[in-house]
Nucleic acid binder design. Structure first.
Lengths: 282, 282
DNA sequence: AACACAATGAAAATAAATTACATTTAAGCT
DNA sequence: AGCTTAAATGTAATTTATTTTCATTGTGTT
């Protein structure tokens, strides 16, 4: 989608001249959108047709169309998006890159979420007798966080990161119970089974996972915050941040639905923590 | 700035023909950015120079430049602000607001972090014999996540969200051990005590918390991702997302420091999960 | 070294946008 | 109303920009 990212990603597959153009473009994309093909060619010290070919290679109709894409990429909030961490990066560099790519992925997740589904999920959650949050690995962290949030609402909340406990808990679920399952891949076998068991026992199952995955198929409601895969370091990064933001959204929807009296209750929970803290002296 | 808004605002001051162009553009701006001046003129049933004059009237250099502005306006989905969730917001509205404020807070956190401190923290972590991650409440979630990440590095990692276990664990720490404490407020008494105990036993203590707090004072290294307080709904939201991003950064720094051979190891850990998943059929 | 093929550039051809100028339209004034 | 004038719009010519065609250069292979 984002053409600057695309150039960065495909840089290695470019020919010598194409790289020259790419370098000039990446160096100052904002200048390029106001340049003619002739001036860009001159800057990159290659011919005009090469620039044109470069544009077509990136699936644009030609140079003017390419500039349009470039302009849009630049406008897209975060300019230098999703740059990959490099072996020799300084702390300064990888810090910036990780923040930028996290932000870019949140943008992406925001666009991918279906607010109708969020609305339905909030409906279901507000009417639940009991809410269970399950996940494994990195997604267990998200479930843990959800528990921490929803626990404050004075609703029966369950959280397990142990497969057996998740299964046992689902077997005991009944109508009126809601089970929320977190899984980035949507292919974790034990979790798919938990979803199945929960549905057999009349619980409503909400999946925070990719659409069109085995897990998604077992769910009543699917929420898919899509991010560009976190391949960088073989660790889930952006995906769980997106999931956590979704938890915030569900929790917010929940409190809004419950009305203002209910929010006083939240304040009480927070205030109850005060005695365990050192006072602020200001 | 935004040219679509500008057209809407100045619509009343346009001449008859200019309004025709404006109408066509506003009806489907996305189409216009791919149209030539000729085709736009034809659609609006006016002449080409009139289109050109229209563009100049809006302070652009000409038609191509106008299209560039238009393209950017279209892409500009997110004006970054920290808008607060309102009682009567729709799902659409509060979803957008939460994403926007999360993003804005990440920007803020990025600026507030001291990369020298990050570098020192990474130094310390790479040399640790044993790493402990402790937190309470919402920060327990962050500690949990850190465990999940660092565990993959084949380093002894400890995580507890139970105060007593945290204390016992700290009492047993020795030189070469690193204790990482997460706390948004930096005023949680039990955690400050844990920090104190750990230091008395020669462990290095890294605090992910606000500077100038009781906890910060007990730490060898302090990392403070500052966010605007999450007062909205009496729940930690942005703060923990910022802390999690910091965990990503530390983990990334760790793997970079350990070199490329080490990264193969990570891949192995990830691959080992494969058998527990449903295959992708593509 | 010779061949094949991809990459590049020069020049011609095409397409697009802009300018100059003519014509129309509308507004103001007697 | 009818004349005058200025603004608005359109036509056609010009200029500019982009794309295509085709020749040339470079690169890797047998």
């Amino acid at each position: 989608m984002n053409i600057i990212e695309k150039i960065t990603n495909e840089f290695d597959t470019f020919s010598k001249s194409e790289r020259k153009v790419a370098e000039v473009i990446l160096a100052s994309p904002a200048t390029v959108i106001h340049a003619s093909i002739a001036s860009l060619a001159k800057q990159a010290k290659i011919s005009e047709p090469t620039v044109n070919r470069f544009c077509r290679r990136l699936d644009t109709k030609g140079y003017p169309d390419f500039k349009l894409h470039l302009a849009q990429s630049l406008a897209n909030g975060t300019p230098y998006v999703n740059r990959h961490v490099d072996e020799n990066d300084t702390a300064e560099e990888y810090t910036t890159k990780i923040f930028e790519s996290t932000i870019a992925n949140l943008e992406m997740a925001r666009k991918s979420l279906d607010t109708n589904m969020i609305n339905r999920a909030v409906d279901v959650l507000t009417q639940a007798n009991k809410i269970s949050f399950f996940g494994l690995g990195a997604s267990a962290v998200v479930a843990h966080d959800a528990q921490n949030k929803f626990f404050r609402f004075n609703v029966p909340v369950i959280y397990f990161d142990d497969v057996l406990m998740q299964r046992m808990s689902s077997i005991n679920s009944t109508q009126g119970d809601v089970v929320v399952l977190f899984s980035h891949t949507g292919r974790t076998k034990p979790l798919v089974e938990v979803a199945h068991i929960a549905r057999e026992n009349d619980a409503i199952v909400i999946g925070v996972t990719d659409a069109n995955t085995p897990l998604a198929k077992e769910c009543n409601i699917v929420l898919s915050p899509t991010v560009s895969e976190d391949t960088d370091l073989y660790m889930p990064m952006a995906s769980r941040i997106a999931q956590l933001t979704l938890v915030d959204i569900l929790a917010t929807g929940f409190t809004l639905r419950r009305g203002s009296k209910f929010r006083d209750n939240l304040k009480k929970v927070k205030d109850s923590l005060r005695s365990s803290r050192f006072e602020r002296k200001e």
